[in-house]
Amino acid sequence: MGIHRRYFYPLWLRLWHGLNAALFLGLIFTGLNLQYASASAANLDFRTSIMIHNVCGIALSLNYLAFVALNAATGNGRQYLPRLKSIVGDMLLQARYYLFGIFRGDPHPFETTPQRKFNPLQQVTYLLIMYAVVPGAIITGIGLLVPDILVRQVFGLSGLTLTDLTHTVIGFILSLFLLGHLYLATTGATPTANFKAMLTGWHEDAHEPETTRGTDP
């Protein structure tokens, strides 16, 4: 018994993740500042907020392109694809673990391996977030950055209003994701194990994983 370590996260992935996280926080903070803008001293200056939000948004978009390219180049993109045949059952199994098993101290229902780092719920959530929600934020963000390219009217509603509403709702969904993501990251071998793993690349297991016994680097 004891903590077993395996190298899971290559440097590029950790750099991407760190940069993404920092930009995410900057965008949420300045986004809230813009949405709830007021002259109060608690608010960052409006123009500074816009400037930071724009710079972070552009940087996050470039970082996203790098993520897509590197996912394709390294094969890491496969991590996000759930097993379609058993997807519903797998997700329920993982949900049941989070709702009940975790309190009983049951082992994680899906063992993490370098080939399958994410559990089925992670796969589906990350797939939706990274390939639908984040691109949505980027596309609507570009629309707000260069409003001239927007459709002026959509069914009688201003295109700008619609774009902003979508951008705000997406921003809100991503904030909720961040909350859940940070909390579930505490469910590793120890509450801080996953945070350390994203810094060092080394994933920790409470038990020696069966699939890699004897093959640790």
């Binding site: 813009l34 949405q35 409006f46 201003s158 209003t161 809100f172 904030s175 909720l176």
Partner: peptide
């Protein structure tokens, strides 16, 4: 909402309340 869009001023009351409730519940 129907006439124009002004960052910081264009807030939909219901969406605003809903967002606080959902965030609070989370």
């Amino acid at each position: 909402l129907n006439q124009s869009y002004v960052i910081g001023a264009t807030r939909n009351y219901y969406l605003n309340v809903l967002s606080f409730v959902v965030f609070g519940l989370t």
